[in-house]
């Protein structure tokens, strides 16, 4: 077994982190969205503990506005792996009156997820939540630690983070605090795709080129769906598209693409002059959109 190539080195680092989570925490959970990054995390967790089963459950925070293809994929994958999947719904949080549905042109359930997530962490007493965020995605995420401590309110204190030195991860926390863990911090979008290809991982079909009813707003391609607000004058057309990131339908824009295989996707990303999160509507709210969400307890 070697750790010589770039992708092997990243894989070994991530496996080491997974094992630190299992060893240092009592109730870890893997946050699973059905997107490519969380699918990668599941494979890394499998490798870290094989032949034993993954020693923690997966949890999906379901906005109710997901792409149906993602949900179908999620359920199939969980059935094959035989792992426990916890589903917590944003709709329930709305029904409990804890958050209010947004209205209007840019309404989305993206912000509301945070409350559902924090409630779930408290209900299940999770002390570590493994997530697929990567530092190359966004400039606030570039400042993130691998073990990132959240206070009793689930909040991120970005100005006072624990230093991380060499391989040593400090998971000591107070009762009520939790740690967000990011095993693929050092991976880029291309690394994730390279790994998906190398491991021959199944991913939801919306990552590949397909015809979809869409409309254009602010230079981005939005899905036409019952969950997405649309003005009457915004014209719906069928376009050949794929998605580079998978959030829910109201915050993820599509890109025009003919890439039908992983190899073609990789080639397309190499050529692309737009970043992965350039198609994330939720990041466009302000320069500090991600930092603000993270402070409040977002993924």
């Amino acid at each position: 077994m070697t750790a010589k190539t770039h992708i092997n080195a990243l894989e070994n680092e991530a496996i080491y982190i997974m094992r630190e989570v299992a060893a240092q925490f009592e109730r870890p959970v893997l946050l699973f969205s059905g997107g490519k990054d969380s699918i990668t995390l599941v494979r890394l967790a499998q490798k870290a503990f094989y032949p034993a089963k993954i020693p923690f459950p997966l949890m999906h925070i379901d906005t109710g506005h997901n792409f149906p293809e993602t949900i179908e994929f999620r359920d199939q994958m969980v059935a094959e792996l035989g792992v426990e999947l916890i589903i917590r719904k944003v709709q329930d949080t709305i029904d409990q009156g804890k958050v209010k549905e947004e209205f209007g042109r840019y309404s989305s359930r993206n912000m509301l997820q945070t409350t559902t997530l924090l409630d779930a962490i408290e209900a299940y007493k999770f002390d570590a939540c493994i997530g697929g965020a990567r530092r190359d995605e966004e400039k606030a995420r570039a400042k993130e630690r691998i073990f990132s401590v959240r206070d009793d309110f689930g909040q991120w204190d970005e100005k006072n983070q624990r230093p991380e030195l060499f391989d040593m991860l400090n998971g000591q926390i107070e009762h009520g605090q939790n740690v967000r863990v990011f095993p693929i911090s050092n991976w880029t979008e291309l690394d994730v795709w390279t790994y998906i290809e190398k491991e021959n991982l199944e991913i939801p079909s919306i990552y590949f080129s397909h015809p979809r009813k869409t409309f254009v707003r602010d230079g981005l391609i939005w899905s036409a769906s019952e969950f997405v607000y649309k003005d009457e004058e915004e014209i719906v057309e069928e376009r050949q598209v794929r998605f580079r990131t998978v959030g829910d339908m109201s915050c993820t824009a599509a890109v025009i693409s003919k890439a039908a295989t992983i190899r073609e996707v990789v080639a397309e990303i190499r050529e692309s002059s737009i970043s992965e999160r350039g198609a994330r509507i939720d990041d466009k709210r302000s320069e500090a959109a991600m930092e603000k969400r993270k402070q409040q307890g977002y993924f």
Partner: peptide, 27 residues
Amino acid sequence: TDGLVAEREQGITIDVAHIYFSTATKS
């Protein structure tokens, strides 16, 4: 590279940021 609001306000780097790029031979 200065990803935090406080850094942009003060025009200084406070925390370590990680930046990624690659060439044909190295990441």
